[in-house]
Design a protein around this nucleic acid. Structure first.
Length: 179
DNA sequence: TGAGCGGCTCCTTATATATCAGCTTCGG
DNA sequence: CCGAAGCTGATATATAAGGAGCCGCTCA
């Protein structure tokens, strides 16, 4: 069983936005806009809600959500706000989809990463403890990357669905049980 | 030779994980 | 005044986005 720790989603409003005006209308600390540092405007409703990064082109990114539903709820809130502000006419965007899930899991046993690097296949594995303490594994034929740590904790990232992350973890559990 | 354009890299954000160096702070 | 303890920021992973800067290539 994997636990979702971060969801990244992106979408488009299909409308050119005046970020300077939007940022001043919304005001800090909800809106933060510093075009000299980065072209996107950051929008955060409350301290614990995910972050929305909005661009001049109308495209936006939601990061920091803890579930797919969390992302969709925030997108709804964002669209409603823009409708209320009369930036857009109807609360409907052109497209919106989940781009990346970051998940955490535990194998329940300590791992010998040196041995595991060989066991998982050197061609799909990178382990340089002097550079980073985790072993990086790219399971063959699957979209996603696994970070394995000596404590048995695992981070799975790069998946577009939770099922994909679950599949990767199931395969990993099975492979490791053979050692 | 220089202008223009395409492609590439970096920046920023979230998030778990762990390990290092370097820095500040605190107590004896 | 020094060692220990704690904190910060780097390391690496994925992913979207727009802009800046850089490099190489082509054409006039």
């Amino acid at each position: 069983m994997v636990e979702i720790v971060n969801v990244v989603a992106s979408g488009s409003l299909n409308v050119e936005l005046d970020l300077e005006r939007l940022a001043s209308d919304m005001g800090e600390p909800v809106a933060r806009y510093n075009p000299e540092k980065y072209p996107g405007m950051y929008l955060r409703f409350e301290d614990d809600t995910p972050l929305i990064t909005v661009y001049r082109t109308g495209k936006f990114i939601i990061t920091g959500a803890s579930s797919e539903e969390d992302s969709y709820v925030l997108r709804e809130r964002f669209l409603n706000l823009l409708t209320d502000m009369e930036v857009i006419v109807e609360p409907e965007d052109e497209w919106f989809s989940i781009q990346n899930y970051v998940c955490m899991a535990e194998l329940g046993q300590n791992l010998n990463l040196n041995a595991l690097a060989i066991g998982l296949g050197l061609e799909n594995t990178e382990y340089e403890p002097e550079q980073f303490p985790g072993l990086i594994h790219r399971p063959e034929g699957m979209n996603g990357v696994v970070l394995l740590f000596a404590t048995g904790k695992v981070v799975i990232t790069g998946c577009r669905t939770v099922d994909a992350a679950e599949d990767i973890f199931a395969d990993l559990t099975e492979t490791i049980s053979k050692f």
